[in-house]
Design a protein around this nucleic acid. Structure first.
Length: 960
DNA sequence: ATCCTCCCCTAC
DNA sequence: TAAGGTAGGGGAGGAT
């Protein structure tokens, strides 16, 4: 598509003369609140923008009315746009001559790659740099190395300290492409310049002798001038106000110079056919490159992976902690008292960036601060239909009723001076990583939720500040408490990224999450344990995580949309169950009471991989569809490869135009109102191969029998994942491996070796004792299993398959891969294998032995017995066994230290299972442990126990 | 009673 | 123009 930048500019300036047009009336139904409660009533104010993209889209509902209105006719709903403002925005930081703007617009055409959504003009230096960077990347990939375009910086090397604008990546590209070197660290005697934007950043790291600190403009201006400029002009002035002032003024001038230069240098316009819809082979890649939803999904996954890679690498948090302690002690002298963390109270942080996408933009557009800003594809200009969605909007825009997920059209109606800014996908990724770096350098007890949101268990971090009231002595106040720590982290994030973060603090993830809303924008809120009940009572039920549009509707009979958690408490769990179902009701019942004992760090298991495309699907013939399925399959292959997984199950989901929905959707290439259809199939052996996936998908597609031209969305989900290295084996052999005791190799060998060694040691010890004439300690001599009952079981070990009923040769069902459910054994079999009486005896014995303090001879057998039960697939028995002593460990009748010991035993099992089976039994998950530990005593008497015991699942657990 | 399949819901 | 993805939890209802 032709860039059309000149044309666009003409159109825009033409519009400027007309001024803002009158807001066109539309069918009142279109915007009536009754029809769209999700917009006007249910959107949570004050909640973070980026977390509230609505899932119910108003345009689906408005398809019909709009058609009746005649959407095809010219401009049924002309959006009121402040074109004067838009134009001001367009020309900000550049001179106002149309010529210049026009020339630049044309000049950067090569960088625009003909994208129709781009503005046809460099909007900011950052924008220029992004495009430039893309080009550089291309050069690196295609030409093998960065091409130097000049040698301005010959013999010069720079180190970038802290957050700068342009970013260090951008500066690196600039210096490298112009003959200089980029240093990742300051190297005394070697690094020529340190680049920094703010003195505060430099101060923190303590200036080295001879370090020359200059502003980033030095680089930018030199490139723009085509020669090395005098560094004296750019020495960083240690006055923050001055810096702030310069940020607005100097940089935009530098930008102007550089963009103009780029304009002169690059006049070639690269024309490229862009993929219009899903018929084009390049569509998926094009689409993904522009989809914000795809991006946030991808980023969330990337951040989770990043955190777990840090964990795997035993990433050290010592130095950052030490720095924090030093810094906070220093600060402590200033004497601002805050409350300390009471002993035995947890401090969970919920860290959330304030309207993330907008904040990222504001880093390079300080001139937009304080104005209503929205990140969206649409330019908000006249030739936009305004059906573009707003991904994130500033607080100023929210104050005017703009919401994340609003259509630009609607947003402009409410806020005519809304400034629409484009996405900066690469920056979201890099800023996100910086945020995670800041936090992860202090603690790895964190859970990545998304690119801009995470939970942190800061308890240990805070307690590491001993001597300041957090070390178990409740003095009621202290200089360094959770709030100080949170502020310290927020400050670091702002320094490194230029973005504000808010932190909600509470004794649980739930409370932390709820308090964040009160922290925003750019603040901290701590709700302490003692205030939880009251605090939660005052929260709206609709604000609870997991309570969305539909749940709220289902709760209609209990109260209105504004109902508070406190009011909800008068309903019993059973009543809620009727409306919501068992699990959801239970969860809600606990949440409205502020109850949440979930851990921050949870073992995450990738259970599925999918590709869904519900935009741009407009096929005319079957070949196009088949071709598209092939592209989807190869996308999936890529993803599986990345995750090092293969799949045993495939699900195809299609969206088909609803019979009464218009053929042409209101939103360009949108899916409109649809019916969905799902079909699933098996892949045995598990498969990661694009061709097979495609064939399977095609089969499923045939079985759905939807007319190709009516398709509006297609998605393929893969589940029942296994790690790809073992997945190559046929399922049966895999399963045999799963449960067959291993003679050599594998984790078990180590365990058995350990056992044997222990046996030897004990034997030796016994002999020594005998030699000394001491009584051998009978109770501890056998490391394997040394309590009654277990030996019987060892003796009754049977070959695999004999006690399996449904699948003769398999110990478990074929869906082991993602959700391994042990077959339910007939009652007799179960009893024969491990009788109830036996289990009771084991239970009693366990409690008995736990009257002694834990020691390897005591917990060793527990560990190994549990492990041998798992190995033999006796998960129900294992559950009972594990529960017994987990519960016992919580009771007062056992010796001290068992609570801790049982936890480590569970952790050991987790490790052993994950290594050997790539799977972890559900009961090892924290939630379950907690639930069981709540009921102490009545070890085997409770009937319910047995029921739960039969329902054990194993979930796969990928290990890198 | 417990599963699987085909959904729906929620979150970011 | 516009770029409505993706992963996980859970429920209804039929199959076993």
């Amino acid at each position: 598509m032709d860039v059309g930048s000149d044309r666009e500019l003409e159109l825009i300036s033409g519009e400027e003369e007309e001024g803002p047009g009158p807001s066109c009336e539309t069918d009142p139904r279109v915007t009536s609140p009754e029809l769209f409660p999700e917009e006007d009533e249910m959107t949570r104010e004050g909640d973070d923008a980026d977390s509230r993209w609505s899932t119910v889209h108003s345009w689906d509902t408005v398809d019909a009315p709009i058609t009746m209105n005649g959407i095809g006719e010219p401009g049924p709903s002309k959006p009121p746009i402040d074109f004067a403002l838009m134009n001001r925005w367009l020309h900000e930081g550049s001179d106002q001559e149309g010529n210049n703007g026009r020339r630049r617009g044309a000049a950067v055409g090569w960088m625009m790659e003909g994208r129709g959504d781009e503005r046809g003009q460099i909007r900011s230096f950052g924008h220029y740099m992004r495009l430039k960077k893309d080009k550089l990347l291309h050069q690196v990939n295609v030409l093998g190395r960065v091409k130097e375009v000049s040698d301005i910086f010959k013999g010069i090397s720079i180190f970038v300290n802290g957050y700068t604008y342009p970013s260090s990546i951008e500066l690196r590209n600039l210096i490298q492409t112009n003959g200089g070197n980029f240093h990742v660290y300051y190297e005394p005697g070697s690094t020529t310049y340190t680049i920094a934007s703010e003195m505060a950043t430099v101060k923190i790291s303590k200036t080295k002798k001879d370090e020359i600190i200059v502003r980033p403009e030095f680089i930018v201006d030199s490139v723009a001038a085509g020669r090395l400029l005098d560094d004296k002009e750019y020495i960083l002035i240690p006055d923050e106000n001055e810096i702030l002032r310069r940020k607005g003024a100097t940089i935009s001038q530098a930008m102007k110079r550089l963009t103009e230069k780029a304009g002169e240098a690059e006049t070639r316009v690269e024309k490229r056919q862009i993929a219009l819809d899903a018929r084009d082979a390049a569509f998926i890649d094009e689409y993904y490159a522009r989809s914000r939803l795809h991006l946030i999904s991808t980023l969330a996954q990337e951040m989770r992976d990043y955190v777990s890679s840090l964990r795997d690498a035993n990433y050290s948090t010592d130095s950052a902690r030490a720095a924090m302690i030093e810094k906070l002690r220093e600060k402590n002298g200033e004497g601002s008292l805050t409350r300390s963390l009471p002993p035995s109270e947890r401090a969970v942080f919920h860290i959330d960036l304030d309207c993330f996408f907008v904040s990222v933009t504001l880093r390079t557009r300080p001139d937009l601060r304080g104005r209503p800003v929205a990140v969206t594809h649409s330019s908000g200009s006249k030739d936009s239909n305004g059906f573009s969605e707003i991904a994130s909007c500033s607080y100023e825009a929210r104050a005017r009723g703009v919401r994340n997920g609003s259509l630009v059209r609607d947003a402009l109606r409410k806020c005519s001076d809304l400034v629409c800014v484009p996405y900066q996908f690469d920056d979201y990724r890099s800023v996100s990583k910086m945020i995670y770096d800041v936090i992860a350098s202090h603690t790895l007890e964190l859970r990545a939720v998304s690119c801009d949101e995470m939970y942190v268990d800061a308890t240990s971090l805070i307690r590491s500040l001993d001597g300041y009231g957090n070390d178990g002595v409740d003095d009621g106040h202290s200089s360094i408490g959770p709030i100080v720590v949170a502020n310290y982290l927020r400050e670091l994030i702002r320094e490194r990224t230029g973005c504000p973060a808010s932190v909600g603090i509470g004794p649980s993830p739930l409370v932390a999450r709820l308090s964040t809303r009160f922290a925003k924008p750019d603040g901290v809120k701590w709700v302490q344990e003692r205030d939880v009940e009251e605090f939660v009572a005052n929260q709206k039920v609709s604000d609870l995580p997991g309570v969305g549009y539909s749940t709220l509707n289902k709760l209609g009979e209990f109260g209105g949309a504004d109902m508070k958690c406190g009011e909800m408490r008068r309903f019993g769990e059973k009543e809620l169950e009727g409306a919501l179902g068992k699990k959801t009701a239970h969860l809600l019942y606990r949440m409205i009471r502020g109850m949440d004992d979930s851990e921050v760090v949870v073992e995450r298991v990738r259970k599925s991989v999918s590709c869904d495309i519900n935009y741009g699907i407009r096929f005319t013939k079957d070949e196009e569809l088949q071709q598209f399925l092939a592209s989807l399959a190869s996308q999936l292959e890529k993803k599986l490869l990345q995750a090092r997984m293969k799949a045993a199950s495939i699900t195809l989901k299609v969206m088909v135009r609803a019979a009464d929905a218009p053929v042409e959707t209101a939103k360009y290439l949108g899916h409109g109102r649809c019916d969905t259809h799902t079909r699933c199939g098996r892949l045995d052996p598990p498969c990661g191969d694009a061709e097979k996936l495609m064939n399977e998908a095609r089969k499923l597609m045939m079985s759905i029998k939807a007319p190709v031209e009516e398709l509006r969305g297609i998605g393929i989900q893969l589940s029942r994942l296994v790690r790809s290295n073992s997945a190559a084996r046929p399922l049966a052999s895999q399963l045999n491996r799963f449960f067959a005791p291993k003679k050599n190799g594998g984790v078990m060998e180590g365990v058995e070796k350990m056992e044997r060694q222990k046996e030897k040691d004990e034997e030796k010890e016994k002999k020594e004792k005998e030699g000394r004439g001491e009584e051998p300690n009978e109770g501890r001599k056998r490391p394997r299993v040394h309590f009654e009952g277990v030996e019987e079981i060892e003796d009754h070990r049977r070959p695999m398959g004999e006690f399996m009923v449904n699948d003769v040769d398999l110990p478990i069902r074929a869906n082991v891969i993602s959700k391994l459910r042990v077959i339910s054994l007939p009652e007799t079999e179960k009893l024969a294998f491990m009788g109830e009486r036996t289990m009771t005896r084991i239970g009693r014995k366990i409690v008995e032995m736990m009257s002694e303090e834990p020691s390897p001879p005591l917990y060793g057998p527990l560990l190994l017995h549990g492990w041998s039960l798992i190995r033999r697939g006796q998960l129900p028995a294992f559950t009972q066994f594990a529960r017994t002593f987990i519960r016992a460990s919580k009771s007062n009748s056992v010796a001290e230290g068992w609570e801790f010991t049982t936890r480590s035993i569970c952790r050991e099992w987790e490790k052993m299972c994950s290594k050997r089976y790539r799977a972890v039994p559900d009961l090892l998950k924290r939630e379950e442990r907690v639930e069981w530990s709540e009921t102490v005593g009545g070890v085997w008497e409770n009937e319910e126990d047995h029921d739960i015991a039969h329902d054990v699942t194993i979930t796969t657990f990928p290990i890198l």
